[in-house]
Simulated assay, not measured.
Amino acid sequence: MVDPARPVRLTPGTKAPVDDVRAQARLRSLNLTMLLPFIAAAGVLSIGLDARGPVDVVVLAAGVLAGLAAFVRWISNRLTTRLAIPLVMVAAGVWAYGALVADAGSAIFGFTLVASHVIPRLPRHHLAVAVSAVTYVLAIGVLRLLLADDLQRADLVTFVLFPAGITAGVIGLMFPNQRFYDVVADLEWALDREAELAVTRERIRFASDLHDIQGHTLHVVKLKIALAQRLVHTDPARAEQELREMHELVGDTITQTKELAHAQRRLNLTAELENAKNLFEAAGITVRVERGSEPDPRVNELLGQVLRETTTNVLRHARAALVQITLSEDGISIVNDGAAGTGPPELSGLGTLKHRVADAGGELTVGVELGRFSTVARFPAATGASG
């Protein structure tokens, strides 16, 4: 299975990742929008300059279309070997026709475009294939000179020096360009792993809390059971007392476990704020925190739960680069960019918190606008009471 965030090389049967979104896809889309019109215009111009009849127009147009197809498929990360081979053959044939038959030096346009996008994506032998491509261009150009009845100095430039030079130059430039996209993919992959690691650390923290609650209780219950077994015949009253204490201890543990499972264990807003900041920074997300007036202490725990749940949602579901956390007297606001979609967001864990916030006299709202996801919890009643 192909990792959508990893760079994809051109190998037989390789398909472009279905999930190629985020920065790399945006860069490719920007290149397509900016460069395609200029490349297409240059191709049309090359046909207009050298075509001397309908046959020349058709053949030269085939070369231009092959070059444009290679460019578009490369931009969309879908240039496979199955497509690349026929494109190379068409472009090579057009160059041979243009140099040997149509006297059209611009026929090199399609071959240069196809070769420059195919060769850097090969899994190996880049240099050998690049040299072979330039050698082919030179060979066709030299053959054109040998077959010419009236050899002119301009022919050396038009069919040998310029085509070979432009082919070598464009292929050479495409190698760092391809590497740039690979580096972007590597960075995205690393950020994904950082986000997963941050979520894993949060899960470990939850597991540690659960262990603190239940591990101690189970150990104490085990000791009390052993004690009750020894006392049941010699001191029944004491054994009964131990059983009552075990019953109360287990009941209290069940309550604490339920509170933890529903994120209802007492939280410290300041500690949660620091934890969220550390998690976001570990995932490569910039965090801005604005602390105005401190929220009412009576809603401190609920705000901490809102912050914790929102932090988890951002790490799991968003492609955020920036998170803005704002504390005010009446509540908290968390806004992040990179929201996936513009429709109504799914509340999931925030849905449960929305009811709890409402029961406490507050309001929890979430929304997506212009790619920004916002979570806002307000307690106007608490502000009025404190005033």
Rank of each mutant, 00 (worst) to 15 (best):
A25M: 10
K258F: 15
A40K: 09
V129Q: 00
F180Y: 15
H233T: 14
L279R: 12
A381M: 13
E242L: 15
G13S: 08
A66G: 02
L27G: 11
T286V: 12
L68E: 11
G141N: 03
L83Y: 03
S374D: 07
T112M: 15
G384S: 13
A261R: 11
T81M: 13
P7S: 13
R298W: 00
L122F: 02
A130F: 05
K277S: 12
L279W: 00
V232D: 09
E196L: 07
P54G: 10
V366Q: 06
D155Y: 08
D359H: 13
G304F: 00
G53T: 10
A102V: 10
R78H: 09
E202Y: 06
W95Y: 14
A339F: 04
A195E: 05
L87V: 07
N278T: 12
D186C: 14
L350N: 00
L156S: 04
L364T: 02
P236C: 04
G331W: 01
R372V: 07
R308L: 10
V287K: 00
P37S: 03
G361T: 13
L122D: 00
L27D: 08
G105T: 04
R378Q: 13
V376C: 08
V376R: 09
P380L: 13
V58D: 12
L227H: 07
P17C: 01
V21M: 08
V250Y: 02
A228T: 05
V221E: 07
T234S: 15
R121I: 00
R82D: 08
L260R: 12
V137I: 10
I39Q: 10
K15L: 14
R73I: 03
I213T: 12
A382Y: 07
V306S: 01
A226D: 13
E274C: 05
F109Q: 01
A115H: 02
R238V: 13
